[in-house]
Nucleic acid binder design. Sequence first.
DNA 1: TCGCCGATGTTCT
DNA 2: GAACATCGGCGAT
Length: 188
Amino acid sequence: MTLLVDIDFSAESLLVARQLIGVTLLIDGVGGRIVETEAYDQADPASHTYAGKTPRNASMFGPPAHAYVYRSYGMHWCMNFVCREAGHGAGVLIRALEPTHGLERMRERRGVEKLELLCAGPGRLAQALGITRSLDGLPLDAPPFELLPGPAEPVELLVGPRIGITKAAHELWRFGLKGSKFLSRGFN
DNA sequence: TCGCCGATGTTCT
DNA sequence: GAACATCGGCGAT
């Protein structure tokens, strides 16, 4: 059992996105503390699931606490954690984390030395952790995944509009860890 | 430091 | 044929 986090993934994505900040995500022992997330839901025009189930987004309509991995702009991978009950098409995009485990492995994969650039952005994070379509649909409570709880005391959150979308661009569904140097971009 | 732009493949109209 | 939940390099400030 590697899902050691007290998070109810059957809750709505907005709630899960907030609770994931501060949680440690490892894949084959490589990763770090999640510092930035975004929430998506089927009722949300910016979501891949807005128009219904397709082969690409099928895992978003599957059971919660599973991974949804898709190709972005033809050359990057991005990962979501599926939320709510099966069939709801909701999830949380993992946008950035603070590297803590397997730093040299991440540097090899990224071809970058600077710690602040290893996992700052969904595409970079996926490259650093070796995330590809092979993880799409896999459960988060079994290897290669490992989720470890963050600090006991609540963390201070930043809130802002999601990045890189054109629809529902005003919704404040992006969350970050206040004071982190590892965000993909600043909050205003 | 900021902003523009091309790369590149899948999905959907 | 267009859009796209991105990134890195380039040139201008």
